[in-house]
Each structure stands twice: as structure tokens, then as C-alpha cells.
Write a protein that binds this DNA or RNA. Structure first.
Length: 924
RNA sequence: GGGCCCAUAGCUCAGCGGCAGAGCACCUCCUUUGCAAGGAGGAAGCCCUGGGUUCAAAUCCCAGUGGGUCCA
């Protein structure tokens, strides 16, 4: 195993008089110009030196600090790159949120597949780290949302075949730039320390320096130079082996918020980055502290900076010590600090929400949407706790305004909708818990853990809320420490086994050249000629045919594969499936054309045209949906078909009938405009720059060039086949909308002749109904409503009549048999009527003080036995005995029972035996 | 993407194989004169939809629809 020590020895350090020292407290190695230094300079080995005594010459706002950073590197030949969205899943599918500036260039740039937009480059990237959520507000320096200033350089060995090559710069320049930036801000560089560390993550690793000034880590300089390799020479702290790469990536992170804080020397970072928001919240919550109280808070914050506070728990633990040093009671300190901590957190969370919602994340129960919902609910709780009475949408809007978003109305609307949903959940939860608490209060038992888990997992009610409500009712609740672990257990924990799709004859496919995709050259042509490169036998008896070029579109991007025929002079085969594996297109065919043969291909034109119409229509519909519902609307999945297609879109509420009509109108307007549908293959970065990440509606393509499809004003990265002009779509008919999960709505539609067919189906249903009712089409709804009402009224009337009939029967005759049993009269009677009637009759008999034993042969054999109050005959037992005689069973409470069996022929026998059965039961 | 929960009167919910229930709201009357008043009476249900099991399903099973919630 090799040592990394040499990796930190730079010529720069030698030239500039830096020495390598060892921290006397923690033992870390670090570089400094001050040979007399004893510690590494990072808490807990040192204290903050800048609170109330700013570390830079000038006081800078967050915006000014950002600009200072960006222009510093721009002046040193770095291309300035616009920040990416915080929703990293807009351009990559392995993470949800952007957590560092390097995320912008993963995976395609760091792996060398795509060139960076500029090399070297600089960016100030908004990031969100949910891991820090508990620390926000408490430690004075943690924020969930922050801007990471990063300057990056991508180096690769000459001839390694990457999208970039050569040396831009590496460690020497990186460290020099960093020190120079400090010096430009008036820092004496002998106060800096650069601590040696190792960075590991995402399959890569490398040495890094943590740059510390005045006790605060302001930058991390990472040199990505290793990649995971089982045979590698370097073992890293994650326990894996790594080896040297032929690429070297400079990955730096400058915490713009911390630099701003350093320049201002405020007690916490929050007061430095959004002072006006903190002031607003303090005013609004009525936190007008006296000078003396403010003084305590100020000194406490300062003390916090001097302590080793890395986690929210540390803060709690340090409270006593702080209170003692300040000369106040711990309780008083807490009383003063907690509302402020909440306010800091509210400001930070509002900023986080502004980023998330502003970048188009829609709250939901899945993915990034779920994270947004969590943050929003947490923020709402804080707002209520601390007593801020401004609506949450206003707070988020303040931050969205500061951040310069122009979709603020939508953001506010989303927040309002979401707050309302949360309120309903709380209402529901409160009722549920109160009811449960009452139940357990009655029994004098504590609420068990299983109930707590159920309440949280299925109803979203936090255990502390349960405890609070239960306490009001004097019920104990014991929340175990491992509560969330128990919830996790309930989810099984077992990892779903990824079923790796096996590609048949994969090895050989890798050796074949990529198939020429003729369908991109002319999307309207359906015939072509080609040479058979390879034929594989399939297990099902068909053949997989690889050609040198093809007009057959393989399944992809939600578009099903083409069908058609491949023929030689001798054989013609039906193509039933077309798939692409690594650029090689495989046609599944029911005949073997023979390797090396010339073939003619003919695509099933009707099918393909239907698919093309639906594909282009998909672009038109999503474009229209964005116009009607808002710019946040994004595709969450799509499937094209020949008869209808569907797209799933992200939207925060269910859409109304009016909105559906509006979308349909606009879509058909685009069709009528007969706009040209065009394709182009621009450089991916230029495309992103020109059109934004909304390009990637249907997934993220790889490669330097990407294919763009323009439909009217709409631009999307897309690999599918399209009609030449929007008029070719013919017509678009929205067939259905359904909410497939929270925040995702499925639009089903048909295009062209399929739209006409679909309309016919709906019309047929209407016409048939109208005919059945014998009314005009437009009268169908009203008539149906009237029929329904009448049907209900008639049901009630029948019910009524049955009761009257039963009374009449009970008071006057019929062929009933009356016997004496248990000092009461029993009426045994056969009425061939349904169960309702039998029950009514039985009730009528009981009214008169008699036992009723009724039988019916209307459907099988059925019995009802009813017994008046105070008569010692068990109806259930009587019915059981009777029903047994007709091959069935029955039962019920002692005063009213029912039963029956299939054997109707024996009904009379059973009734005949009734008197005897009654006596037996009565005497039992 | 996965797990779990729910659907019964206008509202909030109980019932969990055997006659469809309560509270609030509503209507009529009485007693009162109000700040959640009291009393008497009444009306109000395709127990979400479709299958299945059963002598019998609001209740059990399966599927669908709608809603909620937790996790990745």
C-alpha cells in the first residue's frame, strides 16, 4: 500500500515558505507560514477569532461576496458558469438534490464522456444538504441551503480518448489561487492553515486540504486523482482500494455564506447572510429583547463559536457551561435562545424552499417532492412554535424574491396548497389521537408503541404530538428511543433485488459496429436496403437480426418499436420487435435472411405514422400543459401507443375540467398552426445554455451532442421519430386525467385518426344511453338524475309497503299456525318473500307479543325467527336447527336470528317440525 | 419505485359476518332569550365501484377508483 504523504508536498509551499507541522492537540498534519504555530487552527483545537472582529478588510453582503469570488477566478481565465438547479435529478438520475458544485459536472464530465462547459471554470452553486437539518439555527453556522463557490479544472492524459485532454492546472495553482483570494481580501496569509485530509466519495478519491482561517473552515481543496479499483495500491478510509486515474479533477468548495460571515463578524452566519429577514421575523414574532437580554444573546452566540459545537446535541450539552460563564440561569438562557434558534431555522428553511420550489420541485409523496414536503412541514411547525404570524408563503416569497426567481406566484400558490394539506392532516391526526387517547383513558392503560407506530407511519402523526394530546387526557405514552428504528423495521428493511436485464448474446453484440440509424436521416421514409451482419437464433424459434443500417426504430423514450418486414429475394420475415443495445440495433424476425445477404426492409407505415403522430402530440400536450398549469410542469414518465398515449406530469393539485379543455384547445391550436417540426444535434452545453434543463423531459441523454426536437416554441431532447409538421398530427383529444400519486397527474390522449376513434367510443356510449332513455343526447344527464331519484324514492316506497303488508298479515290470518310455547304464542308461517319482507313480518309479529318463525322458499330456503323481550327462547338456536334441515346454517342474537339453506324442497318439513324445535329450545 | 392506512347520513366518525348507528348540522313544535342553551318529534344512506366466499357481506377475500401517510 502506498502512502499519500508525498501528495501534499508542493513546490508552492517550498517557494512561499510554508512548513508542514503537526497539531499538538489533535495530531493532524497541516501547512502554515507561521513556524511557531502549535495547533491546526480548527475548533476544538482553536477558537473563532472573527466574531465582533471581522477577518476581512471590507464588510461584504452575500451577493457582494459571491461576485468577489466569481470575478477573482474569472480574471484568472476561468469561464463563469451559471448555477444549475438545486434539483440534481433534472440532469442526473443517481441523486435527488445538488449537494456540491462538482455535482453539476457529474457524471458525464468527470468520467470524461462530455467536455465541461469551460475549462477551467468557476461557479457559485446553490446546494441543499438535508443531513444538516437538525443543526440549522442551533450551531450558528449550519445551513441547509448554501452556495458552494467552486473552481474546477479537468485534466486528462493526452491520447486517453476523453472529451477533454491535457493539463489545465493542478495542485500548485489551486493552492496559490486560494491563498491569493485571501490576500486580496486583506488577510495576512501567515494566519492560514491548510490541513491535510483525504476525500472519498462516489467511487473517486484524492488528497485534499481544508483551509482554516480564524478558526473557521472556509474552503476545501480536493484533488480527485484515484478511482475505486480492487487491485489498487491505495487503501482509503472507506476500506476500499483505489488506483491512479488517467484524469485529474480539481474540485474545490468555498462556503460563500461563511466567507460573508467572516467579513461581517456577526454572532451567527444567519445574521450575515439575510439580515433583513432575521429582523422581519424577530419583529413579527415579537422578540423585542431589552438591551441587557440582547447582550446575553450576543455573548452566548460568541461563546458558542468558541466551543466545539458540531451538532445540535453539542449545543444542548454546552448550555450549562455557557449559562455559567454568562452568569445567568440555564433556563433563562434557553428561554432567550430557543426562539432565536427557531427564527434562524425558519429563515434558512424558507430559503431552502424558495430554491426547491423555484427550481420546479412539486411537493409530493415521492422523490424530491417528498423532501420539499418534509422541509415545508418542519418550517410550518417552527413558525407556529415561535409565534410568527406571517403566512409561510410570504416568508418563502421573501427569499424567492432575494434569489431572483420569476415564478414567484406559482411558488406562493404551491406553498399555500401545501400548508392547507398539512393543516388537514393535522386536523385529521388530532381527532384520531383524541379518540384513541379517550379509549385508553377509559381502560386506564397507556397508549402502546404499536399504536404510535401506526399513527406515524400511516397517518403522519409525530409521537410528540400524540404525547401532548394524551397528556391532556391523562394518558401515559412511552416513546421508545429507537422509535424511528421500529418504524423502519416495519418497512421490512430487505433490499429489493435488482433484476439485471440480461442481454442475449451480449459479448458478440459488443464486437459489432453501431448500426446506422436511417430513421433520423429521413423520418418519413419507410423502405431501405441493408446488409445482414449477424443472425442469432432465439430460444423461441425466431431470429435476432443485426444489419449495417436500419430504418426500424428500436423501442426507446417511451416509443414502442417499429414493426414491418425484412426480405431477400428468397425469404420475407415479419419484424415483431426492435431493441437497441449499445448502439447495435437488433431486429426480432420470424425468418432467417442469412448472414451477409442484402435485404430490403419495409417498415409498417400505418403503425409508424400513428406512433409518430402520438410522439409529436406528446410534445405538444406537455407544452400546452405548461402554458395552462405553469412552468413547473414537467414530464414524470410517458408511454406512446398507436391508439392512445399517456404522459405523467408533475403538478401540485388535481386539474379541473376547465383546465383540461384549455390544454386541449391550445394543443389543437398548435396543430392548426401547422408549424414545422425540426431536429438538430447541438453541443449539449450550448443546448443547456440556450434552453435550460427543461430540455430533459424524457430522461437524460449521454454524449457530447444531443438531439433536440423543436415543435413550435417547444424544445426537448428526444430520440423519437416525429411527423414533419404539427398539422400532420390531425387532431389531439384528451381522453382522461387521473392522479396516479400525489403531485403526479396522468394525461391520456389520442392523436390523429385515433382521436376520432376515441371520440366515437365516447359518443357511442352517449348515443346508446340516450336511445335507452329515449331522450335527446343533451337530456341524458338530467334524465339519468331523474331516474336515479325516482329509483331511490321507489325503493323507500317498497320498504314502506312491505312493512304495511307485514302488519296486515300479522294481525289478520294468512295460513299461519299458532302454538303455545314458553307461556307465549308462537306464529309459524310460510311466506315466499325476500329477506326484507320476512324481517318486517317478524318485527310485526313480535310487536304483538308473539314469537315469529317465518320461512320463505323464494330463493332457496330462508328463515327468520324473532322473539319478544323477556321470552326465554333463543332465536339463534331455533334458526340453527331449522336451517340445518335444509342443508344450511344460520344464527344471530337471541332475539332476532336468520338463516337458510339451499334445500327448498324440505322447507315445509322444517316448518312442520318448528313447534317441536321451539319446545326443545324453550326447555333447554 | 416500495410499504402501510382509510372510504358508512350534509360534517366528524362508531359498527367489523346476522334488523343501518351516534354526535354535530338540518326541519317542526315547546321552553327559553343568545354567545357550543334545554326538551319533544322528524327527515336524511347505491354503507365508493365491480367480482368472489357464505344460508347470510357495510363487515371477510381479490381487483379497481378516490384520498391519506411513511420510506428510498
Amino acid at each position: 500500500m502506498s502512502d499519500l504523504a508525498d501528495e501534499y508536498r508542493l513546490d508552492y509551499f517550498e517557494e512561499e515558505g510554508f512548513e508542514r507541522l503537526t497539531c499538538e492537540t489533535c495530531g493532524d498534519h497541516f501547512w502554515t507560514r507561521d513556524a511557531s504555530r502549535e495547533t491546526c487552527g480548527e475548533p476544538p483545537c482553536a477558537e473563532y477569532g472573527f466574531i465582533d472582529d471581522p477577518g476581512f478588510e471590507e464588510t461584504l453582503s452575500l451577493e457582494e461576496m459571491r461576485e468577489t469570488f466569481l470575478s477573482f477566478f474569472e480574471e484568472r481565465d476561468h469561464g463563469r458558469v451559471d448555477p444549475y438547479p438545486v434539483a440534481a435529478n433534472r440532469w442526473r438520475d443517481d441523486v435527488l438534490l445538488t449537494q456540491a458544485s462538482i455535482y453539476d459536472f457529474q457524471p458525464h464530465v468527470t468520467t470524461g464522456q462530455s467536455p465541461p462547459p469551460s475549462n477551467p471554470l468557476v461557479v457559485s452553486q446553490p446546494c441543499i444538504r438535508m443531513q444538516d437539518i437538525d443543526n440549522v439555527g442551533k450551531t450558528g453556522r449550519h445551513t441547509m441551503a448554501f452556495e458552494m463557490g467552486g473552481h474546477h479544472a479537468f485534466n486528462a492524459d493526452e491520447g486517453a480518448g476523453y472529451a477533454y485532454e491535457g493539463e489545465v492546472y493542478w495542485k500548485e495553482e489551486t493552492v496559490r489561487y486560494c491563498v491569493e483570494l485571501f490576500e486580496e481580501l486583506g488577510v495576512d496569509s501567515s494566519e492560514l492553515t491548510l490541513i491535510e485530509d483525504v476525500w472519498v466519495g462516489g467511487g473517486n478519491a484524492g488528497p485534499c486540504f481544508e483551509v482554516i482561517y480564524q478558526g473557521l473552515e472556509l474552503a476545501t481543496l480536493v484533488f480527485m486523482q484515484f478511482e475505486q479499483d480492487p487491485d489498487g495500491d491505495y487503501e482509503m478510509k472507506d476500506g476500499n482500494s483505489y488506483s491512479e486515474m488517467d484524469r485529474r479533477v480539481v474540485d474545490t468548495g468555498y462556503g460563500i455564506e461563511r466567507w460573508t460571515w467572516m467579513s461581517q463578524g456577526t454572532p451567527t452566519v444567519y445574521e450575515a447572510i439575510y439580515p433583513e429577514m432575521i429582523e422581519f421575523l424577530r419583529d413579527n414574532a415579537g422578540l423585542d429583547y431589552t438591551d441587557e437580554e440582547d447582550e446575553i444573546v450576543f455573548r452566548a452566540a460568541k461563546l458558542a463559536g468558541h466551543m466545539d459545537i458540531d451538532e445540535a446535541e453539542d449545543v444542548e450539552a454546552a448550555r450549562d457551561t455557557m449559562a455559567e460563564q454568562l452568569g445567568v440561569e440555564t433556563a433563562r438562557l434557553v428561554e432567550l435562545m430557543e426562539p432565536l434558534e427557531d427564527i434562524y431555522a425558519i429563515a434558512d428553511h424558507s430559503r431552502t424552499l424558495a430554491y426547491m420550489l423555484g427550481d420546479g420541485i412539486v411537493p409530493s409523496n415521492v422523490g424530491t417532492g417528498y423532501l420539499a414536503r418534509m422541509v415545508l412541514r418542519r418550517t410550518k411547525r417552527l413558525v407556529d412554535t415561535v409565534g410568527v404570524d406571517a403566512p409561510l408563503d410570504e416568508l418563502v416569497d421573501m427569499q424567492a424574491d432575494r434569489l431572483g426567481y420569476d415564478n414567484r406566484d406559482t411558488v406562493r400558490d404551491i406553498v399555500r396548497t401545501e400548508v392547507e394539506k398539512y393543516r388537514e392532516t393535522l386536523d385529521r391526526g388530532g381527532r384520531k389521537v383524541r379518540q384513541l387517547a379517550d379509549d385508553y383513558a377509559e381502560r386506564g392503560e397507556p397508549i402502546p408503541v404499536t399504536e404510535l407506530i401506526e399513527l406515524y407511519d400511516s397517518h403522519g402523526i409525530q409521537p410528540d404530538m400524540v404525547a401532548e394530546i394524551a397528556a391532556e387526557r391523562g394518558v401515559d405514552v412511552d416513546v421508545p428511543d429507537n422509535f424511528y428504528g421500529l418504524v423502519a423495521d416495519r418497512h421490512g428493511g430487505g433490499q429489493a433485488v435488482e433484476v439485471e436485464a440480461t442481454v442475449p448474446h451480449e459479448k458478440r453484440l459488443d464486437e459489432l459496429p453501431e448500426t446506422d440509424r436511417l430513421y433520423y436521416e429521413d423520418q418519413q421514409r419507410m423502405e431501405f436496403e441493408a446488409v445482414v451482419l449477424e443472425v442469432f437464433d432465439r430460444e423461441d424459434g425466431d431470429y435476432d437480426v443485426v444489419l449495417d443500417q436500419t430504418m426500424f426504430y428500436p423501442e426507446g423514450g417511451g416509443q414502442p418499436p417499429d414493426h414491418g418486414t425484412i426480405s431477400t429475394d428468397d425469404v420475407t420475415g415479419e419484424v415483431t420487435d426492435v431493441q437497441v443495445h449499445g448502439g447495435v440495433i437488433v431486429h426480432t424476425c420470424d425468418a432467417d435472411p442469412g448472414t451477409g445477404e442484402f435485404v430490403r426492409g419495409q417498415v409498417d407505415a400505418t403503425r409508424r405514422r400513428r406512433l409518430m403522430r402520438h410522439h409529436t402530440a406528446t410534445h405538444v400536450v406537455i407544452h400546452s400543459a405548461r402554458q395552462v398549469l405553469g412552468e413547473h410542469v414537467r414530464q414524470a414518465g410517458a408511454q406512446k401507443g398507436t391508439d392512445s398515449s399517456r404522459i405523467d406530469i408533475r403538478h401540485y393539485e388535481s386539474i379541473s375540467r376547465e383546465q383540461v379543455k384549455e390544454i386541449e384547445h391550445r394543443a389543437n391550436e398548435i396543430v392548426r398552426d401547422n408549424a414545422a417540426v425540426t431536429q438538430e444535434w447541438p453541443d449539449r452545453h450550448e443546448a443547456e445554455k440556450a434552453h435550460g434543463f427543461d430540455l430533459y423531459q424524457g430522461g437524460i441523454p449521454t454524449g457530447e451532442q444531443i438531439r433536440l426536437i423543436h415543435v413550435a416554441d417547444d424544445v426537448q431532447a428526444c430520440g423519437g421519430t416525429h411527423v414533419g409538421r404539427t398539422g400532420d398530427i390531425g387532431a389531439i383529444k384528451l381522453l382522461n386525467t387521473e392522479r396516479i400519486q400525489d403531485g403526479v397527474i396522468r394525461l391520456t390522449f389520442a392523436a390523429g385518426d385515433a382521436a376520432i376513434d376515441a371520440t366515437h367510443e365516447i359518443e357511442d356510449a352517449l348515443y346508446e344511453t340516450a336511445e335507452l332513455f329515449d331522450v335527446a343526447n343533451e337530456d341524458v344527464p338530467e334524465t339519468a338524475a331523474r331516474f336515479f331519484d325516482e329509483w331511490k324514492a321507489r325503493g323507500k316506497e317498497i320498504e314502506d309497503l312491505k312493512e304495511q303488508l307485514a302488519e296486515a298479515r300479522a294481525s289478520g290470518g294468512g295460513d299461519s299456525e299458532e302454538i303455545e310455547v314458553a307461556d307465549t304464542t308462537a306464529v309459524v308461517q310460510r311466506i315466499d318473500a325476500d329477506m326484507d319482507e320476512l324481517r318486517a313480518q317478524a318485527n310485526a309479529v313480535v310487536e304483538q307479543g308473539s314469537i315469529a318463525v317465518l320461512g320463505s322458499g323464494a330463493s332457496g330456503a330462508q328463515f327468520v325467527v324473532a322473539v319478544p323481550d323477556g321470552v326465554a327462547v333463543n332465536a339463534g338456536e331455533v334458526v340453527g336447527e331449522l336451517a340445518g334441515r335444509v342443508g344450511g346454517g344460520g344464527g344471530g342474537p337471541p332475539d332476532f336470528a336468520q338463516g337458510g339453506g339451499p334445500d327448498a324442497d324440505r322447507l315445509d318439513d322444517a316448518l312442520e317440525a318448528a313447534p317441536e324445535i321451539l319446545r326443545q329450545v324453550a326447555n333447554a
